[in-house]
Design a protein around this nucleic acid. Sequence first.
DNA 1: CGTGTGACCAAATTTCAAAACTGGTCATGC
DNA 2: GCATGACCAGTTTTGAAATTTGGTCACACG
Lengths: 243, 243
Amino acid sequence: MTLDRLAASPQADDERAERILAAARELLLAWGYKRVTVDEIARRARIGKGTVYLHWKTKETLFTELLRRELHKQLGILAAGIGQDASAALPSRLVREVFLQQTRNPLDRALHAGDSDVLGALAITANGLPVIQELGFHTLLARVVDVWRAHGLVTVTAPAADQIHTIDAVLTGFMTGGIAVPPSEEFPPDHRADLLGHTIKAALETSAGPDEVTLRAAAQDVLAALAAAQGTLAEARSRSAAR
Amino acid sequence: MTLDRLAASPQADDERAERILAAARELLLAWGYKRVTVDEIARRARIGKGTVYLHWKTKETLFTELLRRELHKQLGILAAGIGQDASAALPSRLVREVFLQQTRNPLDRALHAGDSDVLGALAITANGLPVIQELGFHTLLARVVDVWRAHGLVTVTAPAADQIHTIDAVLTGFMTGGIAVPPSEEFPPDHRADLLGHTIKAALETSAGPDEVTLRAAAQDVLAALAAAQGTLAEARSRSAAR
DNA sequence: CGTGTGACCAAATTTCAAAACTGGTCATGC
DNA sequence: GCATGACCAGTTTTGAAATTTGGTCACACG
């Protein structure tokens, strides 16, 4: 365990942090927050338990960073999609994509659903708020809605707060999938994503689609909002490090 | 306890059943299914415990009937609303009303949300399905959507199954209220109901509102569907009685 | 020297058997 | 012949002991 590393270079430190995070991620998905022990994480990362605490003050900050990274990555994927095709910045398209991402990535799903089987004590933060709020998702949503309004992609007759709430509720509803209707193979994620997209489009978007120029400008602003949110996440990271 | 009743008339029997049901309802709301004991129900209804079993085979059938009655009553209120104003049969209006009912009536809410704090073991039936499904809500929703389609109140370009799923998901989403947005006093139930109604309307209803004649005809058919569902509920009741 | 470690500690969680409770029955009394 | 509550088997709760776990730190190692 001690043969391969002579001095601690910052580089090796980073690589070690990654290993810890990777181990934590695997275990979180397999067992859920509560059952994962710091000891086990250390064993998987092939380091001593104390070393984990050289990187994070507590088990909680370690996992919080893991979640921050997850959201950071998700935002990156969204941004990439918009970069490739500006129309992916449209409300219906963006919400659709978020839905698909949550469907595919178990951690994202747990995060947005506040799944306490996976998140355990993390599901609700010290402030009594769901993690997803703590991570600034609400702020991002509000900013993006503002961008959409500024560029006329969504109606401005309705208050922004109403639109935010509608998006939140509808997305959540499609995530849980409703209650009355029995799950069926007729509804694969892609299809449900389409229904969600259609609902968002009908409820919020302006009837006439935007012209090319407006769309590109709006896409730029959405990208900026995403980047800003990523920045906030990255910044919070350094604040939770042990050293 | 025996002075006031000499012979058991069917009438007195019914009145007694009502007392039991009323006691069960109070206790269910106060304590939740699991904590409510048959003993306590009997005490509240001022009868012996064994007497409860003269009316229902098990604790579970007793509470299932309670829930059936609750849904029956809710359907009655919906029907009354339509009787008074045919436009209450429109998708957006009807869903809106269901939402408000669930918001106001704790039992309805528990029923539709599958709240296991209240419903306990009842939340999931012996068949592994949520109670609300067992009670035929899905069948009713499917029928009503068909009526709407037949009368051109909703688009017929989209499959009915998609529309059912959309209604279910959106209603559920507004019930839980989303995750990302912190609850606020800005969003009283009435306001959220409006947002829900708007969403359903935009996502499903045909752009041109129906003429008076069509609306009335559709309203009649919706009423018939509601009455049929009530009939099914009442019929199931007799099947669960002990005698 | 300074980094990494695992033995160690207090606090939290799990175990497990005894005690208490509860759904459902039925012999009894009215 | 209907209503009742004592009674029973099976389940749940309790609580104290045993185990586990997050977090610390004295020490070994390079």
